[in-house]
Simulated assay, not measured.
Amino acid sequence: MYCNDRFDRDCQREYTRFGLHGMWAIEPLLKEYGVDLVIWAHDHLYERSFPLYDNKVYNGSTEHPYVNPGAPVHIITGSAGCKEGHAHFQKDPAAWSAFRSSDYGYTRLVAHNKTHVYMEQINVEQKGQVIDSLWLIKNQHKPYDIK
């Protein structure tokens, strides 16, 4: 999974891209099957990526990165809490990181129809304030054309 947690070894290992011992890499399958949204929850934080493949950003456009994006969008939504406390981000996030928060919270997702998905991150430490939101719009579902 793509993440910027300072202490999580899984963020550094890049299993999504390369698999475990060179096997079971997920990212090529996400590309091949045109997966729009990848939701992770292992890490105890919230992080949203720009459309992303092989550490490169493939925004739909500069103004509207999530309208007909050129790669899957990754969301880590594991911020419901942890007995070990808050997660800690690296000081300098990767260029693909669009938004991140280590506050406790939860994510709401609504699939409005076959082309529009809405997500928002709720911060429970700020009494239910929406701290992040996103409309993911994809007019045609097909494999990504990434070279």
Results as ranks from 00 to 15, higher is better:
82 C>V: 11
65 P>T: 05
87 A>W: 01
33 Y>N: 08
110 V>S: 10
131 I>G: 07
114 K>V: 11
42 H>G: 12
101 S>R: 04
58 Y>S: 01
41 A>F: 08
113 N>I: 03
51 P>D: 10
60 G>K: 00
9 R>I: 09
27 E>N: 02
21 H>I: 13
64 H>D: 14
45 L>G: 05
120 E>W: 08
117 V>R: 05
125 E>D: 00
65 P>A: 02
1 M>W: 10
44 H>P: 01
96 W>Y: 11
60 G>C: 06
41 A>M: 07
79 S>P: 01
34 G>C: 02
49 S>H: 07
72 P>E: 05
64 H>Y: 12
8 D>P: 04
5 D>C: 09
146 I>C: 15
110 V>N: 12
87 A>D: 15
69 P>I: 03
33 Y>T: 01
75 I>H: 05
62 T>R: 15
87 A>G: 07
93 P>H: 09
42 H>M: 01
65 P>Q: 02
37 L>P: 07
6 R>A: 13
20 L>P: 05
104 Y>H: 14
36 D>F: 00
74 H>E: 05
147 K>T: 14
109 L>R: 02
97 S>G: 10
133 S>A: 13
86 H>A: 08
38 V>D: 05
99 F>M: 08
28 P>H: 08
75 I>L: 13
6 R>M: 12
113 N>W: 03
122 I>C: 03
70 G>K: 01
2 Y>H: 11
77 T>D: 03
115 T>H: 11
98 A>S: 13
63 E>Q: 13
132 D>L: 02
83 K>Q: 15
69 P>G: 04
5 D>K: 04
130 V>L: 08
109 L>P: 01
44 H>E: 01
141 H>I: 11
112 H>F: 13
66 Y>P: 06
118 Y>Q: 06
9 R>Y: 04
61 S>A: 10
93 P>G: 03
101 S>Y: 00
140 Q>N: 13
99 F>T: 04
114 K>L: 08
24 W>S: 12
137 I>H: 09
74 H>F: 15
64 H>L: 15
14 E>N: 15
135 W>F: 14
19 G>H: 06
104 Y>V: 01
85 G>L: 07
119 M>G: 03
115 T>P: 02
132 D>T: 00
75 I>G: 02
41 A>T: 11
108 R>P: 03
25 A>G: 04
10 D>K: 06
32 E>M: 08
44 H>W: 00
140 Q>G: 10
81 G>S: 11
128 G>A: 04
116 H>C: 06
